[in-house]
Design a protein around this nucleic acid. Structure first.
Length: 239
DNA sequence: GCAAAGATTTGCT
DNA sequence: GCAAATCTTTGCC
């Protein structure tokens, strides 16, 4: 880095997000997530998303209707919906479909393109603030772990994307299609289209069929930056 | 008002 | 393979 960078990218067309959510999901795969500007920017290609569509999707936060938390899901497309899960991790969604309809795409994994150092520094900051409080986890051990991470593990999960891009509640409601936004979506002319595979969504064991099994997880097959999917049997059980 | 669970990640046994 | 960490949001009394 340090060399001047010629930007061949432009902002992500909002129109693509106002189409139906499955089409929007496919168009978002391969798009870029960017934080900051110029040579200092952290940029990654989106390689995994999940669709949460409509009030009747019993896996979606919109299933209880419009609430304080999910309000932006009902708003215009292209806006960020950021929420806190499990009391410690943030998740980034891109709102889809026309205003008035509750739908969004969860960004589950990103492949670093530029600014790995910045992502690593952000991960380290997050770890020092939060994970260092884990029982028995020392600051030094946590630092060593982050330093040793390969680039394709820097943003390979929904919580990790937010840690690597310093995404928090302060980004909730920001416009990701606005070129002037610090956090935004972009398309680069030099990028080749990526293949897309589908599968069931992750971490929604509370949802009944058909929502539990419908193939609304979209990802680039074989990509090294995909999230690690935890089998349902290993997920948290109520005591 | 209070209790329960969660669109996750990590470390230890 | 299993459970902890952590706190906001939602649902129910």
């Amino acid at each position: 880095m340090g060399e001047p960078r010629l930007s061949l990218s432009c902002s992500f067309p909002r129109q693509l997000l106002s189409a139906d959510t499955e089409a929007a999901a496919r168009s978002l795969i391969g798009a870029r997530l960017a934080r900051g500007r110029g040579a200092e920017a952290a940029i990654g290609r989106i390689v995994e998303v999940e669709a949460y569509a409509g009030l009747d999707d019993l896996a979606s936060h919109a299933r209880f209707g419009r609430t304080g938390r999910n309000a932006v899901m009902f708003g215009p497309p292209g806006v960020a919906y950021v929420y806190l899960v499990y009391g410690m991790h943030h998740c980034l969604n891109v709102v889809t479909e026309p205003e008035g309809r509750a739908a969004a795409l969860l960004i589950r994994a990103v492949e670093p393109v530029q600014g790995e150092d910045r992502m690593r520094a952000a991960r380290l900051r997050w770890t020092r603030v939060r994970a260092s409080r884990y029982a028995g986890t020392s600051d030094e051990a946590a630092s060593l772990r982050i330093e040793g991470l390969p680039p394709n593990r820097l943003a390979s999960g929904p919580g990790l994307v937010c840690a690597a891009f310093s995404i928090g509640r302060h980004d909730d409601g920001s416009d990701l299609c606005e070129p002037a936004s610090d956090l935004r979506l972009e398309i680069a002319a030099e990028d080749e289209p990526l293949p897309v595979a589908t599968g069931p969504r992750v971490g929604i064991d509370y949802a009944p069929e058909p929502w539990l099994s419908c193939p609304w997880r979209f990802f680039v097959p074989g990509n090294a930056s995909l999230s690690v999917v935890v089998p349902p049997a290993r997920r948290r059980v109520a005591s």
